[in-house]
Nucleic acid binder design. Sequence first.
DNA 1: CTTTAAATAGAAATCGTTTCTATTAAGAGA
DNA 2: TCTCTTAATAGAAACGATTTCTATTTAAAG
Lengths: 145, 145
Amino acid sequence: MDISIDSCIAQLRRNTLKVTPRRLAVITMLLAERRYFSPYEVYERLLNTDCSSGLPSVYRILQEFSAIGLVTEIERSDRQQYYFLCKESSGAHHHHFICRICCRVEPIKKCFFDSVKKHIETELDAQVESHIFQLEGICASCRNH
Amino acid sequence: MDISIDSCIAQLRRNTLKVTPRRLAVITMLLAERRYFSPYEVYERLLNTDCSSGLPSVYRILQEFSAIGLVTEIERSDRQQYYFLCKESSGAHHHHFICRICCRVEPIKKCFFDSVKKHIETELDAQVESHIFQLEGICASCRNH
DNA sequence: CTTTAAATAGAAATCGTTTCTATTAAGAGA
DNA sequence: TCTCTTAATAGAAACGATTTCTATTTAAAG
């Protein structure tokens, strides 16, 4: 099943979050452009539209969306918040590739962690519980350009 | 070669950083306990010693150390700064395992990235340039307890 | 419609981090 | 060992991302 405004609305309802114009505006924006945004960028984009939100509201909306898995947070070296709407909406564990040119994010279907976990646990004699894995580079579209 | 106060001092000299009591105090502290610290924690520990530093100085010292590769920064979900002194001082690319109990950090000798890079590049038709990889769990010492 | 709890605005606070300026001290050279 | 230059440090202040607070508005259940 592909992600759409309707599936997002359904996800809000499933989590008893009200379907408000501001929330829809944020979702619509994230759906239109599949890249990551800072809360301030979202705020800026919605300014001067009929569904602009205050900056604190944007923060809250994005945090709520993140809490229900509607959006995903990524890691950046500036240690600030960035969110995007992942096309891999199934909720299955996966990782992301971020294009440093266009800031779009691609899900990586295969997680290689299981195959190396045992090696690492043996090497360290530790119990590995979680991992962070994220890739950066240049995406197909930006390369052919 | 193992890491020691002397090898740290040599590294300061190599990078024309002066060997000051405050810098030595930070190094000594990080050497004694191989876990990660926030700048504030370092500041706190040095308070009421003969080599205490102001908080801005601690931030600067840790940033300088990080810039010359003497300390390493880790990622945490609270998006704040944390540094530790890695026993793997060779400078070769490697990753880290963080114990969520004792906050100690272990280097992982083998990086599995090269073996999966091609798979990912083929899957995405992208050029992968860098990656973040970090593990968390319970270390050997904390498990046997 | 009414009602109620959730959502939002906007101001203000918070807090990790950085900047600024005056002072101190490391260490190179005499 | 002494002097001098420049880097290091202290402490106050600023900064800026994020959160909190309170009053107001609104979604949506009944």
